[in-house]
Design a protein around this nucleic acid. Structure first.
Lengths: 142, 142
DNA sequence: CTCTATGCAAAACCTTTGCATAGAA
DNA sequence: TTCTATGCAAAGGTTTTGCATAGAG
């Protein structure tokens, strides 16, 4: 049912690590927010419900979630790293408004295909990619 | 002749800022290195020739160069920001080996074109983009 | 002369780590 | 019982900032 929690637990098992309440609580808050949170923002959310959880635990949990393929970090331009859930969230890239910060999730199978070819042409086996488009949204253009 | 220096000076003028020896010296070293330097690496280079230049000045200069469109920051993997000259260096994206860190500069007009369309379809006017492909290079694959 | 740019050191910002202890297996 | 995960605070790595002074216009 909760795929992310399953994924977490099977990753923990595979790695010989232990379960913990904190990690599940942090994961719940992360998934519930449905946003691209920074570690700090997630810590603030988590603190409201579970005030005893420490900041380091949130950082450690996010790192773990990334390793377990539950989330990934976004390489946007400024500020702290942001994390995005992978589960229940198809792969996509980002289109960000330079003016207001609004963003869209976009995807182009054709672009992905060309990326494959580009990598192959250089003798690389493509594993992943990060694409961020920066522009002006319809509102900020006027 | 030295387009980058011209660009710097016209930017300074436009912004009502003053010229300085340090900025030109830092720019010279930056361009001469022809690498994707971090601020620290550039500072080390600069120090050899001009020991009296301070680290903060290098950071301030790099920020300025970005604003003046002389260089741009790369958000490659981890660690500190890296800077890349724009002038005398056509636009390109990066293909990085996850294993050894080796990288290639790549470009695909077709992808750029599709990016335009993707942005337009969402009502955005595309201004720039960052594309980084991660994979395994021919050596690390074997 | 005026006011920006610099150098220095300190601060700020984000993230990781050491250590003693709580808690899972 | 054993050994990982946690919480705290301190340290780490990178970048920015305050302030007095040098230096450009």
């Amino acid at each position: 049912m909760n795929t992310a929690k399953d994924k977490l637990n099977s990753y923990l098992e595979k790695e010989g690590m232990r379960r913990s309440q904190q990690r599940e609580q942090i994961l719940d808050e992360f998934l519930a927010s449905k946003r691209h949170l920074t570690a700090e923002e997630l810590y603030d959310l988590v603190k409201e419900k579970y005030p005893e959880i420490g900041q380091a635990t949130v950082y450690r949990a996010l790192k773990l979630f990334c390793e377990a393929n539950i989330c990934r970090t976004l390489n946007l331009q400024e500020g702290p790293a942001r994390y995005e859930a992978i589960i229940g969230h198809e792969h996509h890239d980002h289109l960000i408004c330079l003016d207001c910060g609004r963003f869209e999730e976009v995807v182009s199978p054709r672009i992905e295909e060309l990326q494959q070819k580009l990598a192959e042409a250089k003798g690389y086996k493509l594993k992943e990619h990060r694409l961020v488009l920066y522009g002006l949204c319809s509102e900020c253009r006027s």
